[in-house]
Design a protein around this nucleic acid. Structure first.
Length: 779
DNA sequence: GTTCCACGCGTTTTT
DNA sequence: CGCGTGGAAC
């Protein structure tokens, strides 16, 4: 922060300078003082608290460029780690534009990608075969199902998904089966199955995502020589999105970072939204003390959003306890107020969004610079339909990605078998696909034999009698001959031969709906042709530590680690639809944040979890800070969910936003207190207006008399109680229960005997009660 | 081996 | 309501 020589373009300063003030390097031009300070810190532990839109990635990449270009470190001494392939690619691209050195000497990649590279180099020490393959989540689940079947475990009692979650959670904590406490006996079976699963993976020579990390951590911990080698090599370790690290990744960093050395972590505790998958923000606090952080720099100047958006986001997030503390500011001015709309139905909400989008398009905005965000994927349907009817191009993020498609996975399974025939997951997947008369019966027999022998299905195939044996051996021979035929061929030719000989292409060509699948298989050939072996594996500066790895093996790792694009075809200018989670890291001119309703956002399932509400609030913070100029918030009084209409209360987050930053567009019912609400509204006065055609939705409001039209300033506690429920109860109504005491109805759903109310009790928290059973009295 | 229906389930997601 | 799974029937 002390640096005051802004972006001077002085050319006289020494490029080798290690001074912490601006050295005059053109790299530093345009950076603000704290950014410059961060970029030019000495090689000591540093934590950069980088708020949303504060230039986090820029600082990270500029630091690498600065370190290398000032000769403080050779590219080989850089280890930079990210969470997603996209982030890693972006970092590489930006570096390439900044400096002209061989980037390949650097280790830049995802945690998992780098662990893969590490384990390939040290597979012997890690007790893995050179050809080990990586299971993605789907593969892992099928491996678990196969395991449960082999062990005769009732998968009703031990759902495979649950076991998968158990195993992954344990690994994320750095725990092996033997490390887990089973004193209460509750987990005992899970622990046994975890162990059995690991044994199976070991036998088959496969690792799951968690295993990539855990093996690496164990090896680094166990082998002083290897650990010291890498510590000596990587004088600079840089981590992006540090708030998303799980305890295992933290351990990995601890093993690779030299104590007191150049470890540079960038993160934002307010944007930690992945606790549900093992991330632990506490790692940031831990990092500060355990690594002995010498430099704590806050990047608080936001270059993205206007003031109203930022102020509201700041106010919201200040409701969270235990923050590292940070307040974003901008020079950009207040800008437009945040526009808020409340509708009576989810369809009307969608129609309103579409009308606003039409307006923005008419003003010349790019569709791709507008995003519609929602908490859960199920919400996208109405919006999609409405956009579709309006003829507005849109693009939905999420869904199946290229390497996750069934036909592609089948093809990959053949390739995996060519690489390692003992991989039972791949074997089971395609032994009878395309169908070749090897039914469930035959596979069961084969599995029994394999279990007796403690061998793979492939090895056991020789022992299988009868017709089944002949068929299976036919399959095995096919794999062998594919392997033989492709020796010396390029990766692309290998894939082509496999597609031909396996009969996959023929199978899909014969299928009526198979055209797209054939195209995907062709695309796989293209992917193989385009695959750059060096980009994934090569480490030209360190040939000694590089194990020999076939191009096929590298390609398969690539396919597992990078599932490919999951968005619809690019190119067309389209409105972006995505969950808030997938919006992290992105920005848009205009953002529509929809479904701001209790139970949906914050999600009802989050309320029971410890810190769940705070994570929801951070999610809201992330969502709001995606907007550059214009932010819309919307909510609906009723929503179709799971085939039933739900009556929701406005999200509590709305009450945490300063009124001064908002502009209400919706007609509103002013209510002074909760108890007066039951007297307000009813369906009558608003219904006719709510049914206006979409085109009538304008900023000037709906002519509701009791609010003075759109743009009025409501009292922040107001609840627009115009939505009723057949039971006669209303959301927001205060009730008393004989056992739980006083509470407020937060949601109503169902009808008749199924009618239920969600009630937030003062004492016991939120509960769903059946209205036909619960004894409620109105207060 | 394929097709069809009944059932169950339903935050968020990268690697 | 809409999807994916799984079992049963053709």
């Amino acid at each position: 922060m002390s640096s005051n020589s802004l972006s001077s373009f002085s050319t006289s300063s020494d490029p080798q300078s290690r001074s912490t003030s601006a050295s005059g390097s053109p790299l530093l031009a345009g950076l603000n003082p704290p950014q410059q300070e961060a970029v030019t810190l000495p090689p000591e532990p540093a934590l950069i608290l980088a708020g949303a839109g504060s230039g986090k990635t820029r600082v990270l990449t500029t630091r690498i460029a600065w370190l290398v270009s000032t000769g403080q470190v050779s590219p080989m001494g850089i280890l930079a780690v990210t969470f997603t392939n996209k982030a890693a690619r972006e970092m590489l691209a930006r570096l390439g534009a900044m400096i002209s050195v061989n980037l390949k000497g650097m280790w830049i990649g995802t945690f998992h990608g780098l662990c893969n590279r590490f384990l390939r180099a040290h597979h012997r020490d890690a007790a893995l075969p050179a050809t080990f393959q990586i299971l993605d989540s789907q593969d892992q689940l099928s491996a678990i199902k196969r395991l449960l079947k082999a062990l005769g475990v009732d998968d009703e009692k031990y759902p495979p998904k649950q076991l998968q979650f158990f195993i992954n959670s344990a690994k994320e904590q750095g725990l092996r089966a033997g490390d887990i406490d089973d004193s209460d006996g509750y987990n005992r079976r899970h622990i046994e199955l975890y162990q059995a699963y690991d044994d199976q993976c070991q036998r088959e020579g496969v690792v799951d995502f968690g295993e990539l990390m855990l093996r690496s951590v164990e090896l680094l911990g166990r082998s002083d020589a290897i650990r010291e080698h890498y510590r000596a090599r990587f004088s600079h370790v840089l981590i992006d999105e540090f708030q998303d690290t799980n305890p295992l990744q933290y351990q990995w960093l601890k093993l690779l970072g030299s104590p007191g050395g150049g470890i540079f972590a960038v993160g934002d505790d307010d944007q930690s939204i992945y606790a549900f998958r093992g991330a632990d923000v506490a790692n940031m606090h831990r990092f500060e003390s355990e690594f002995g952080v010498k430099h704590l720099i806050k990047l608080e100047q936001n270059y993205r959003s206007h003031g109203n958006i930022l102020d509201a986001a700041n106010a919201l997030i200040s409701n969270n306890a235990g923050r590292l503390g940070k307040n974003l500011w901008t020079e950009a001015g207040a800008g437009e107020p945040i526009r808020v709309m409340e509708t009576s139905s989810d369809l009307l909400e969608a129609q309103w969004v579409v009308e606003e989008i039409k307006g923005l398009i008419a003003d010349g905005q790019l569709r791709s610079d507008m995003a519609i965000l929602y908490r859960s994927n199920a919400q996208s349907r109405v919006i999609e339909q409405t956009l579709f009817h309006a003829g507005i191009p849109y693009r939905v993020f999420g869904g199946l990605r290229f390497f996750e498609r069934a036909e592609v996975k089948h093809a990959l399974a053949y390739l995996r078998l060519m690489e390692n025939p003992h991989e039972d997951t791949a074997f089971s997947r395609v032994v009878n696909f395309p169908a070749r008369g090897i039914g469930a019966r035959s596979i069961e027999q084969l599995a029994d034999l394999a279990k007796q022998q403690g061998s793979s299905l492939y090895s056991a195939s020789g022992l299988l009698d009868g017709k089944a044996g002949t068929s299976v051996r036919g399959f095995v021979q096919m794999i062998e001959s594919m392997r033989f035929e492709t020796q010396g061929l390029s990766l692309r030719e290998t894939v082509q031969v496999m597609l031909e000989r396996s009969g996959l292409v023929a199978h899909y060509q014969a299928e009526r709906e198979g055209q797209e699948r054939v195209e995907n298989l062709e695309e796989l050939v293209n992917a193989a042709a385009a695959f750059d072996y060096d980009a994934v594996v090569a480490d030209p500066d360190a040939p000694a530590e590089q194990a020999v790895m076939s191009a096929l093996s590298a390609f398969l790792s690539h396919a597992s680690l990078e599932a490919g694009d999951n968005q619809a075809a690019e190119g067309q200018d389209a409105v972006q639809l995505m969950t808030i989670h997938s919006a992290k890291g992105l920005e848009f001119h205009a953002v529509f944040l929809t479904g701001l309703e209790e139970g949906l956002f914050p999600h009802e399932n989050s309320m029971t979890e410890l810190n769940g509400l705070e994570e929801e609030r951070r999610l809201m913070y992330v969502a709001m800070t995606r907007a550059r100029r214009r932010l819309y918030l919307s909510m609906s009084q009723t929503r179709m969910l799971h085939g039933q209409t739900r009556y929701n209360m406005r999200s509590r987050f709305m009450e945490e936003l300063p009124e001064g930053n908002l502009k209400w567009l919706a007609p509103r019912v002013a209510a002074r207190s909760m108890s007066s609400m039951s007297a307000v509204g009813g369906l009558d006065d608003s219904e006719s207006n709510w049914r206006r055609p979409a085109g009538a939705w304008t900023r000037q409001g709906m002519g509701q008399s009791n609010t003075g039209g759109g743009g009025g300033q409501p009292s922040s506690l107001a609840w627009s109680g115009s939505a009723g429920h057949e039971s006669g109860y209303k959301v927001g109504e205060a009730v008393r229960h004989s056992r739980f005491g006083d509470g407020v109805i937060t949601a109503l759903e169902g009808s008749g005997n199924d009618a239920r109310a969600q009630i937030r009790f003062k004492r016991d928290g939120s509960k769903w009660l059946a209205l036909s059973v619960a004894k409620l009295e109105r207060v």
